[in-house]
Design a protein around this nucleic acid. Structure first.
Lengths: 197, 197
DNA sequence: CGAGTCGTTGAACGGAATCAATCGTCGTGG
DNA sequence: CCACGACGATTGATTCCGTTCAACGACTCG
């Protein structure tokens, strides 16, 4: 979980600053000075940018565990709005604090770089999976990717609906294809576990 | 361009190590010890992982300007294969070199963090755009995102085919929707420039 | 001058989204 | 303790739109 890594990396476990955000409430606004980066402990935060033409573009939806606005580290202002979608708790990491750590503790800088690099890799993979047209194949790729290599088993610890969303599929399609895969003997289901064959 | 930033960040312009890679040739193999990270100067490099079941999963396709295998910075081995798709030139950045710079020059570490953070943001946005079902809307979001805010103009400096690919659309769909958008008076085209209305 | 590629349009097909309905489960509150 | 609502899981029917196959003109490059 990214949020845990950030906590450990930049703070003594207890001193992390937290905040409750009500649905619709702003964390920050486009154009505001940018003193912090953030992470979502629980809930959901929506990042969106407004264009001159009055169009609004969703840049990202940060779920529990995700960090957001990391780019603020190298920017004086925020380039989008951040609002909670549901009641949320966020962690606040002041830039000053982080930059001080990064400058004085190269090993921490390295760790943070590792964290970011792994995020980049994960995102690129997600993006690549979206290039697969067929729902069936997209699901299979995802499964093989997250499966335990030795047992070929997967534990779904979130609602299937959410997984469908992450894969860019309607949840109905996801369920349907799941049964088909089982009927075709490609997978076997036991509760929230999936066995690949 | 990411590759330029990396060059400047970690090397004196001239001393960057380059290599030609023929189509099909390996840059590295899954399981190999990981001494370097890379970037593509020209061509295309495919990163794919093989699962125990003999399935191969494309993790990423790195195009000209992209870096790849950054995660090697914090890993002893590569977790996927890298092969050229077309004749390619790559830049090689030895980890030792980079780590030395990161440890001794905090400002460079900070810059590299900024680079990674901006990649994360860009990737998240791309992913978010893929959540848009309608081809028309997906294209519009993309256009408004990359448009010059003051002139509302876009310059397409790559073939439309490639843009279509990045948006996850068949190029035919892209062309068709482009004409429709123009017919509907939403955009205006002049050569490779697009004006938003 | 031909090969290759981009840009463009047409026609048809297929598969995923969508709408809709049902069932089970969990938590809440009266 | 039961009724109720909310939500996840599931299946069915229908629609729609993006992919695919196909064909053609324009342009570049060797």
């Amino acid at each position: 979980m990214i949020i845990d890594t950030l906590d450990k990396l930049f703070f003594d476990a207890s001193s992390v600053q937290k905040q409750n955000i009500a649905p619709g409430q702003y964390v920050f606004r486009q154009g505001d000075p940018a003193p912090n980066i953030y992470a979502v402990e629980s809930g959901q935060v929506k990042l969106e940018r407004y264009t001159l033409e009055g169009r609004n573009i969703i840049m990202h939806i940060a779920n529990a565990g995700d960090s957001f606005a990391e780019a603020a580290l190298s920017s004086e202002i925020y380039h989008c709005n951040a609002t909670a979608i549901v009641p949320s708790i966020i962690h606040i990491y002041p830039k000053k604090n982080i930059l001080r750590v990064l400058r004085s503790q190269p090993d921490k800088a390295e760790e943070y770089i590792a964290l970011l690099a792994s995020q980049v890799r994960a995102l690129r993979t997600k993006l690549e999976i979206r290039n697969i047209l067929s729902a069936r194949e997209r699901m299979l790729q995802h499964f093989f990717l997250i499966a335990n290599p030795s047992t070929a088993e997967i534990t779904l610890n979130m609602p299937h609906k959410e997984i469908a969303g992450e894969l860019g599929l309607a949840h109905e399609t996801f369920y349907r294809e799941l049964s088909k895969l089982e009927k075709d003997g490609v997978i076997r289901r036991r509760g929230n576990k999936i066995l690949l064959i």
